[in-house]
Simulated assay, not measured.
Amino acid sequence: MPLGAGRVNLTQLNILNWGFLENIILTVPIGLLLKWFWPKLSLLTIGGLGLLVGSSIEIGQYVLSQHWLINRSSDINDVLANAIGIIIGGLLVTLYYRLSTSRRSRVRLVA
């Protein structure tokens, strides 16, 4: 990419591309770790943290792009994809906890 100030996309919602899916996949581990280390966090709180993390990443890209002319674009689609990925990670850990506790209770009933 050539040097220059990046752009900001706040209007065009485009969820049917590989970039959106990549951002989801890259942030799933954050959701896994949040729910794993703090299991009492609700999924609503994890979703809020997902929006905060996604917004922070995009604001950082915008600031770096304007200051050092690295030509990175900030995109509202990336914020949404990051939040979705973090929520999916939290959901996976929640499902793991529920399945493991139900399996343990079934084993106790049989034994």
Rank of each mutant, 00 (worst) to 15 (best):
I76Q: 09
G50T: 01
N9G: 00
V110S: 15
L10C: 03
N82F: 01
P2S: 05
W36C: 09
L92C: 12
I30Q: 12
S100K: 08
N17T: 03
V79N: 02
L13F: 15
S100M: 10
Q12D: 11
L32F: 09
F37M: 13
L13P: 10
I57N: 09
T94W: 04
N17P: 06
R106K: 13
G6H: 03
L41Y: 03
L44W: 07
G31V: 04
G89Y: 04
W36D: 04
L99A: 11
I87D: 05
L43F: 14
A111R: 11
I57W: 08
T45G: 10
W68D: 01
L33Y: 08
R98A: 12
L52S: 00
L92Y: 03
S73Q: 09
T94R: 12
R72F: 14
N17E: 07
Y96F: 13
L99M: 15
H67P: 00
R106P: 08
N17K: 07
D78C: 05
F37S: 04
L49V: 07
G31L: 07
Y97E: 15
L10G: 13
I24Q: 03
W38K: 08
N77W: 03
I84G: 11
V107A: 14
I76S: 04
L95G: 10
L32Q: 04
P2Y: 12
I84N: 07
V110E: 15
I24W: 02
L92H: 02
I88G: 02
L34N: 02
L99F: 09
I84F: 15
I15P: 11
Q12H: 05
L69P: 09
L3G: 04
S56D: 03
Q66S: 08
K40C: 05
W36P: 05
T101G: 03
R103Q: 11
S42P: 12
S42R: 11
L92S: 04
R104F: 03
W36V: 02
A111T: 06
L52E: 00
L109N: 13
T27P: 01
N23F: 01
I59P: 00
R98W: 13
G19W: 11
Y96N: 02
I30S: 07
L13N: 07
G90K: 02
M1F: 08
L92F: 13
L13Y: 14
N77T: 12
S100G: 02
L64M: 14
N17G: 13
V8K: 04
I59M: 13
H67D: 09
L16T: 09
N17F: 05
